[in-house]
Nucleic acid binder design. Sequence first.
RNA 1: GGAGAAAUGGCAGAGUGGUUGAAUGCACCAGUCUUGAAAACUGGCAGGCGUGAUAAGCGUCUCGGGGGUUCGAAUCCCCCUUUCUCCGCCA
Length: 431
Amino acid sequence: MIDLKKLSHPPDDGSVAFSDQYKKSIQNRGGDPAVVDQILELNSKRKKLNFSIDDSKFKLKSANQKIVTLKKAGKDASPLLTELKAQSREIKSLEAELAQVEQELNTQVHSTPNMLSEDTPFGESEDDNVLYKTVGERPQPKFKVKEHWELGEERGLIDFARAGEVTGSRFAFLKGDLARLERALIQFFLDFHTKDNKYTEILAPYIVNSKSLFGTGQLPKFSEDLFKLENTDYFLIPTAEVPLTNYYSDTILKGADLPVCLTGFTPCFRSEAGSYGKDTKGLIRQHQFHKVELVKFCHPDDSEAEHEKLLSDAEGLLQALELSYEVRTLCSKDISFSAAKCYDINVWLPGQNQFREISSCSNFLDFQARRANIRFKDESMKKPQFVHTLNGSGLAVGRTLIAIMENYQNADGSIRIPSALKKYMNNKDII
RNA sequence: GGAGAAAUGGCAGAGUGGUUGAAUGCACCAGUCUUGAAAACUGGCAGGCGUGAUAAGCGUCUCGGGGGUUCGAAUCCCCCUUUCUCCGCCA
C-alpha cells in the first residue's frame, strides 16, 4: 500500500513529484498510470468530507455541553433538541458519503502495486532480468545427465502416476531415500539459519485468513492463485511469508529489537492457475511443495543492507551444498506486486541444461508493513513508524532436491550426497 | 457440535446514558535524593484521521469488530469474532 500522504504531497523544489515517480513506476510494470490521478482525486474528496464531518461534530458536541449545563440547572433543553436532531442526521449522511468514497479509494489503493526501487531495471519480460553474479563451478559429467523425473521414476524414488490417482496432476509421492533427502534438506536449512540465533525458528499455521493474505499483498488481486477452504475465510498458505510476516500485524515493535529475523519451514500450496502446460513434468511446479522461508522486519534505513544479507544467507546454503548458481535482479515486468526490488537465485540444473529459480529475495520497503500495520518505535521517536519487511526463500526444498539429483548424479543413476547433508542421511554418501 | 461466562490503555482493574481517551495500581521513562543502587517523592507515559510546515497547537475518532437507538453511548439493543468453564467428539 502506497503512502497517500507522500503521494499527495507537492514536489520539493526542483525534484520530481512522488506522484510522478509512482506513475512512471506503474507504467514500467505495465500498468495504467492514470490510476494515480484517480487515487489523488478520491483522496482529496475524502479529506474534504472528513473535514466537514469533524467540523459538524465539533459544533454538535459544543451544543451538547449546553444541554448538560441546562439540565444541571434544572432548565428545559427541548428547544435545542430539534435543531440538534437535524444536525445529527446531517452528520450521518456525510458519514455515509465518506464511507462510499473511502471504499472506492481503498479499492484503487489496495490493488495498486508497490513503487519500484531505483535499482529495479526496466524490462519487458523475464529475459530482461539483469545478471548480478554467477557463483560456483558447474559439474562436467562425461555422460548424459538424466532429468530428475526420469531418474526418479526409473529408480522408484518418485511416483507421479500414483499421485495422479490419489490426488491429481501436479502432485507427487517421494519414496525411500529421496523422501529422506527432502527431510534432510529441511533440517539442514533450518539448522543453518538458526545457527548463532541469526533467525528465530517458527513453526507456523499452514492455513491463514484473508486479512493476513491482504497484509502481504496476495489479496485482493491474486485470489485465483490460492486454494480456499470452502465456506470459510481460510486459505492454504502459498508461502510461509504470509504467516511469518503477519505474525507482527497490528504490532508496534521496539526499535531496539530490530531487525527481527524469522525463519520457518512450511508446505506451500499454489493453484498454478494460468500456468497450464508450463513445467508439467517433474517436481518443478507442483501444487504443494516445501520451502524454508526467511523473513525480516527492519528499520527503513537498513533495508537495503538487510536485503543483501538476506541474499547471502540464501546463497550460503547453495555454497554449502556446492551447487552452481546465478543471481539476477528482476526487471520491472517480472517483479511481484508487493516488491520494490527482488533478486532471484537460479540454480544450475545439468539435466535441463539451464538455470532454474530456487529462491526469490525481496525487499518490500513499507508496502506490506502499511497493509499489515507493522510499526516500530523507540525512545527518540514521537510517533511509531512503519518497518520495512523483506523475505526470501532459504530455500525451496523440492527444487534443491532436483538440483542434487541432477548435479550429483552418477552414470549408473545413483546420487551422491553433498557432504553438508551426510549427517542428516545416516552418514550415507550415496543413494 | 451443545450450554454458560467474559472482552476496557503494556499488564491488572474501576466505570451501567451527559465535558471519560477513560479513575486507581503495577510496569516503563525522566528528574529530585544517594558515593552508586534500592526506597521515597515529582513529572511523563496509546494510536488513527484532518488541519498545519511530514512542527507546535487545534479538531475529530478509537473501551474486541460491525450495525442500531439517542441531541448525546465504554454504558442500552442486534449481529459477528475471540477467549474461558462445563458436556460431547477427537490426535
